[in-house]
């Protein structure tokens, strides 16, 4: 089976400082990869390089496109990359405000990607929007409300709906539960797991929260100071950490 994503030797430097370096991995359809590390580990830099938000200084990111097979998204033209970002890829931001149009209604937010790829039937667009709001557990009677009237958890769920409406195959998530109340986090995690399984999504999730990663990710990559210090099955890395830093990280988690 062809990997959905093949990452080879990605590196990003800020002058003499290492953003991230020497990152290589394969991601297969249906797999969820977690990237953990503390502040400054380079995980967000890596995610942005992979998602096309930041140009890496080295390396390739080969995505198995529907039409042309594996293509390097780093050297792809900008129109193609933007098109990928609207259809086959999705990016869930840590702050919902960065991923939503706050001045547009919830229905408009969900419908935008559909309209961007040519949907021209108002009734159909609205119906799809209602369907997705239901899937992310937002009441349908809020379809015409602006996100500014929503709670943080609802905004985050709306962001997920907006991203998934075009059926992407790869979702990037940057601290998807950061800043949310604990009970709200639980609801969101459950939702994400269900969607990943039902839609056969692959996902790359950056987080500092090991509990999130244990619940959501099949595989785990641990980063420190821009380097990947360990990778493997999530439960193996967390239960039998090999690298000294991973051992420290795991033992530092507060038990409730």
């Amino acid at each position: 089976m062809t990997p959905l994503l093949q990452v080879r030797d990605i590196a990003k430097f800020y002058g003499g400082r290492i953003g991230c370096t020497d990152v290589s991995f394969d991601l297969y359809p249906g797999e969820v990869l977690g990237i953990v590390g503390e502040s400054g580990s380079g995980k967000s830099t890596l995610l942005n390089c992979l998602a096309g938000h930041l140009p890496p200084d080295q390396g390739e990111v080969l995505f198995d496109t529907r039409a042309d097979g594996p293509r390097d998204t780093v050297t792809m033209s900008e129109p193609e990359r933007r098109m990928l970002g609207r259809t086959d890829w999705a990016f869930v931001h840590q702050h919902a405000r960065d991923g939503l149009r706050m001045g547009v209604s919830a229905g408009g937010n969900v419908g935008e990607r559909l309209m961007a790829v040519g949907a021209r039937h108002y009734g159909d667009i609205r119906e799809q929007a209602l369907d997705w709001l239901d899937r992310v557990e937002i009441s349908g009677d809020r379809i015409d409300d602006r996100p500014s009237a929503f709670s943080g958890g609802m905004q985050q769920r709306l962001q997920i709906a907006r991203n998934l409406v075009t059926g992407p195959r790869l979702v990037f998530m940057d601290e998807p539960t950061g800043g949310l109340d604990v009970s709200v986090q639980a609801r969101l995690l459950d939702l994400l797991r269900g969607l990943v399984r039902d839609m056969g999504l692959s996902a790359i999730i950056v987080t500092h929260d090991l509990a999130v990663v244990r619940l959501l990710a099949d595989r785990l990559m641990v980063m420190k100071s821009g380097h990947v210090v360990e990778q493997g099955l999530t439960d193996q890395v967390l239960d039998d950490p090999q690298h000294g830093y991973t051992q420290l990280l795991v033992s530092s988690v507060l038990q409730v």
Binding site: Y28, D190, D218, L233
Partner: peptide, 25 residues
């Protein structure tokens, strides 16, 4: 890792001493 994931899904089951679940399910 993905071979092991497939193995765990289809062939090899494991009942540990602890129940670990996503809250709310």
């Amino acid at each position: 890792p993905r071979e092991i994931l497939t193995l765990r899904r289809e062939v090899l089951g494991y009942v540990s001493q602890f129940l670990r679940v996503v809250p709310r399910v």
